[in-house]
Write a protein that binds this DNA or RNA. Sequence first.
DNA 1: AATTTTATTGAACATGTGTACATTAAAATT
DNA 2: AATTTTAATGTACACATGTTCAATAAAATT
Lengths: 191, 191
Amino acid sequence: MKHDLRVIKTQESLRHALLELLKVKPLEDISIAELCRLAQINRGTFYSHYKNVHQVFKHYLEVIVEDFRRAYEEPYIKTRFKIENMNADMIQIFHHVKKYQDFYQIVFDHRIPMMYYYLLFDSVRTFIEESLVKNQIDKEEGTLEDYLLSYQTNAILGLLIEWHRKDYQTNAEELNKQLITIISLNSPFRN
Amino acid sequence: MKHDLRVIKTQESLRHALLELLKVKPLEDISIAELCRLAQINRGTFYSHYKNVHQVFKHYLEVIVEDFRRAYEEPYIKTRFKIENMNADMIQIFHHVKKYQDFYQIVFDHRIPMMYYYLLFDSVRTFIEESLVKNQIDKEEGTLEDYLLSYQTNAILGLLIEWHRKDYQTNAEELNKQLITIISLNSPFRN
DNA sequence: AATTTTATTGAACATGTGTACATTAAAATT
DNA sequence: AATTTTAATGTACACATGTTCAATAAAATT
């Protein structure tokens, strides 16, 4: 049974232990053995739930990425998908990232596998795709559409990479303004 | 001495052995021990040259990224930095990536650390920055400039991510056309 | 050619990885 | 409450990691 109490207890112990260790050392330096010792879980048991430490971290990130989606969505909903009416203080993604800065610092770390980046990428890309449909913009032919979407998606993530490199020093409001400026001189989906 | 013949021999053996192993298994599955066995290098010696297998691979990637730069530069030089005059068959980056597809498949793999992506990112970003200077476009104020550059840079890399996901099926000429289409509806540095 | 310098080797050690399997114990089912 | 199911444990094994250090051998220097 999937909802076996023992399974839940084991996984929660491991996840909790991971958060504890992350207070002390970077994700890449946390071994399975150490995690299991702290969680008081047999190392063999670990492997029947996760393949590596990253799989444990991924659980947290999935929740956060879901929240990212909400943050991204907000101005679209407020403007009823009329992007022209969007203004800087409606943008929530940078506030969201700032809120979970500890996690995003891990995601953008140069030692961390691309999988987290792709998790974020997919989430943003799917939303942009959906918002185009809702905005009733004519879809281009299939392949161009795909490339255009990935181009746009990754451009947004480029801002986050730059923010990361600036150690999240730029404040979120400032970034909101910059994004508005950029997409106004640079709106690929304008009619 | 840095040019000690023994050092050169050791490093070349390791690099050569890595290429051999890459024909057989993915980078993430290659252990230091295995690499050293094949290269006939003592494992202790490995650590006095490299920290991990990625550092060995990085050597190759640096050469390739330098070639990427040349590919990126080509249309700018041909048009003497007048982007308006650029046309699809001048673009060389996709041909370049196709040529080194085996390597880019590794770079964009979800298990691989972000470091390679950043290596590419930095190279592209630096070139875009330089090309703006040569194109004598007024620089914006410092911070916006940084974010705009990273936005643009990552947008380009978004195309490569999409290509990777399509298993490099789209042909390079097609991609050239798509890029021209995208940047024509979407040129942030237009005057 | 003799000497000095230093890269490489080999061995050892503590720890981590991934897997296997019989045993135990805790949950679900009857 | 008794029984069945199965998750978790403990142990073992082969191999990998990262580090240390004395011994060796191959370079560079004289």
